[in-house]
């Protein structure tokens, strides 16, 4: 079993006076991990903490054994909503090329290898023919593909995707879904947030959240009816910690065994 990708211990995340994630312990292994939970459950906040855009308020968060944030060449983050002003004169190619900035810094020159990566990302997300267009001239799905292309151009071991498939047309969703698989085949890990239970069931590992990490582990263990009732408030919400501790379905918070991960991958609906 490989070393865990991320480990949170008594992790607390907050924006000013609002605590978004209460003390949580969890482990995220390498592979494809889905963070799922209702709106406001702290999914994106946890992703932001992994990306290093918000600080750890209390407890600890380690990525590859080192305190967060991870270096910019280890981790690439594709955000859910980028409010790029309409009419900003930046072409699709320039947006994707920004993915090279962490490697090049403020002054480094683009090399042939960088241009090759940009072309490959444009082709992989099927936006090559849109390269000279502005973002304002694209549909929502095309725009999301451009942001993902920017994400894969950035050197990374881990790709973070915040609700990458929400509200997309079928073509864009298929292209991004395929990419998630390709990333894993290329030895990269993917952590994505979602509202889609089927998408969560298709991943290697699931983190279920509702203001804290309710459970984490293989999907078949985490996505039990009992856990979902706790997370989504469909059943008893109060005094759940005791019930939860006794729940035989309660998922462990260690990485899955290779055999578990493999057997799960066999049943992926992504494919």
């Amino acid at each position: 079993m490989s070393d865990p990708l991320a480990v949170g211990r008594e992790l607390v995340l907050a924006y000013s006076t609002h605590v978004a994630v209460e003390p949580s312990d969890f482990t995220i292994p390498q592979g494809v991990t889905t963070i799922i939970g209702p709106n406001g459950s702290g999914k994106s906040t946890l992703l932001n903490a992994l990306a290093g855009t918000i600080d750890v308020r209390a407890g600890s968060l380690e990525i590859f054994g080192e305190p967060a944030p991870a270096p910019h060449d280890k981790l690439s983050y594709v955000m859910q909503s980028l409010n790029v002003a309409e009419g900003t004169p930046i072409t699709v190619r320039e947006v994707v090329a920004m993915g090279c900035y962490p490697k090049l810094g403020w002054f480094g020159r683009f090399q042939a290898e960088d241009r090759r990566r940009i072309d490959a990302a444009l082709a992989r997300l099927e936006v090559t023919d849109l390269a000279d267009r502005h973002l304002s001239e694209l549909s929502g799905g095309q725009r999301q593909r451009v942001y993902v292309a920017q994400g894969i151009v950035q050197l990374h071991d881990v790709l973070l995707l915040d609700e990458p498939l929400t509200g997309l047309d079928l073509v864009s969703a298929r292209i991004i879904d395929d990419l998630i698989h390709t990333e894993r085949e290329n030895g990269h890990s993917v952590i994505l947030t979602t509202h889609d239970l089927d998408e969560a069931r298709a991943s290697d590992w699931v983190v279920l959240m509702s203001g804290r990490v309710i459970a984490c582990g293989p999907p078949d263990q985490v996505l039990s009816r009992h856990n979902l009732e706790i997370a989504y408030g469909l059943g008893a919400l109060h005094g759940t910690s005791g019930e939860f501790a006794d729940d035989p379905d309660h998922a462990h918070s260690t990485p899955p065994k290779a055999s578990e991960a493999h057997s799960h991958r066999e049943g992926h609906t992504h494919d």
């Binding site: 990306a51 290093g52 855009t53 910019h72 690439s76 983050y77 955000m79 980028l82 409010n83 790029v84 900003t88 930046i90 320039e94 947006v95 920004m98 993915g99 900035y101 962490p102 090049l104 810094g105 403020w106 002054f107 950035q154």
Partner: peptide, 22 residues
Amino acid sequence: FVLYRPLLALSFSRAKAETLGM
């Protein structure tokens, strides 16, 4: 002009500029 790259990233998205190390 020296700040072209960080200013372009900032004009694109402040949050994205952060994750790009700009």
